[in-house]
Simulated assay, not measured.
Amino acid sequence: MPLIQIEQDNPELIAQVRSQIEQMVERVRNLPNTVIAVVAEEFVRGYLSALLEQRLLSVEQWKQLMDETMTAAKS
């Protein structure tokens, strides 16, 4: 299997993650405190965890994005 180089905390990846967070907020803005809101938030958390597991995010960046997700979900 050929090796590929990856960049941890790639700015393009971070922008894509923030876009996912924004989309989650838009989906649930009119449906707060519903199952849909919980599922959307869990989707983003799972997405972030997968990126961390694959070492595409550093632990520090993961924590920051998780905090942003929590803040966005509460807004």
Rank of each mutant, 00 (worst) to 15 (best):
23 Q>H: 02
13 L>R: 08
32 P>T: 03
44 V>M: 03
60 E>R: 07
34 T>N: 08
14 I>F: 01
35 V>D: 00
9 D>Y: 11
64 Q>S: 15
26 E>M: 12
54 Q>S: 10
16 Q>P: 00
2 P>L: 11
69 T>Q: 08
6 I>N: 02
64 Q>V: 15
12 E>F: 12
26 E>C: 00
14 I>D: 03
31 L>R: 01
66 M>C: 13
55 R>N: 14
71 T>Y: 10
8 Q>R: 08
10 N>T: 05
66 M>N: 07
9 D>H: 00
61 Q>V: 15
11 P>Q: 07
32 P>L: 02
52 L>Y: 08
49 S>N: 11
71 T>F: 15
53 E>W: 11
37 A>E: 04
7 E>G: 06
36 I>W: 05
35 V>G: 02
73 A>Q: 03
47 Y>A: 01
73 A>P: 03
41 E>T: 15
4 I>F: 01
22 E>K: 09
44 V>I: 12
19 S>Q: 10
51 L>Q: 15
8 Q>F: 01
9 D>P: 05
4 I>C: 09
61 Q>I: 12
19 S>V: 09
2 P>K: 09
67 D>W: 01
25 V>Y: 02
21 I>T: 04
11 P>A: 11
16 Q>I: 07
14 I>H: 00
42 E>H: 13
12 E>L: 13
52 L>F: 10
13 L>F: 08
22 E>A: 12
71 T>C: 10
32 P>I: 05
64 Q>C: 05
64 Q>M: 11
60 E>T: 10
41 E>V: 14
70 M>S: 11
2 P>V: 11
71 T>L: 15
47 Y>L: 13
62 W>A: 15
13 L>C: 07
26 E>F: 13
7 E>A: 14
55 R>C: 09
44 V>D: 04
33 N>V: 01
37 A>T: 09
40 A>H: 11
32 P>N: 06
34 T>L: 08
19 S>I: 01
67 D>T: 02
40 A>W: 00
69 T>K: 03
69 T>S: 11
10 N>G: 01
70 M>K: 06
75 S>Y: 07
21 I>D: 01
33 N>F: 10
69 T>D: 05
72 A>T: 07
12 E>Y: 08
10 N>D: 15
4 I>G: 08
48 L>G: 03
40 A>L: 03
40 A>E: 12
25 V>M: 04
44 V>S: 05
67 D>C: 02
37 A>F: 00
62 W>L: 13
16 Q>S: 13
15 A>C: 06
30 N>W: 03
10 N>R: 10
43 F>K: 08
65 L>E: 05
9 D>E: 01
28 V>R: 02
39 V>I: 06
50 A>H: 06
59 V>F: 14
74 K>Q: 14
75 S>T: 11
45 R>A: 07
15 A>D: 00
68 E>D: 13
59 V>R: 14
51 L>D: 10
12 E>S: 12
39 V>C: 03
25 V>I: 06
38 V>A: 11
39 V>D: 05
14 I>Y: 00
8 Q>C: 05
34 T>E: 01
27 R>G: 04
26 E>N: 09
24 M>K: 03
30 N>K: 11
